[in-house]
């Protein structure tokens, strides 16, 4: 039972991370469309920010594993 509750928690965290990464990706696209010459810099910054957001979802997955 605790396993399934932990799974729900991991799912909720995935929703949050999904919104976050969606925002990052969308805004990066916008930025690149406005300034194509800065695309490389934007892409790097986007990946770093996405990594930070993604880490939160992964923390949730790890916690879900631990409580199982």
């Amino acid at each position: 039972m605790t396993g399934s509750i932990a799974g729900i928690g991991a799912g909720l965290a995935a929703i949050g991370a999904g919104i976050g990464i969606g925002q990052i990706g969308g805004k990066a696209m916008e930025g690149m469309a406005r300034q194509p010459e800065a695309a490389n810099k934007i892409q790097t910054a986007m990946l770093i920010a996405a990594a930070f957001v993604e880490a939160v979802a992964l923390f949730a997955v790890v916690v879900a594993f631990l409580t199982k």
């Binding site: 930070f52 880490a55 992964l58 790890v62």
Partner: peptide, 13 residues
């Protein structure tokens, strides 16, 4: 620590 968990969790997942 975040660096550690990120790589671990990504590859394991």
């Amino acid at each position: 620590i975040a660096l550690m968990i990120r790589l671990f969790a990504n590859i394991t997942a």
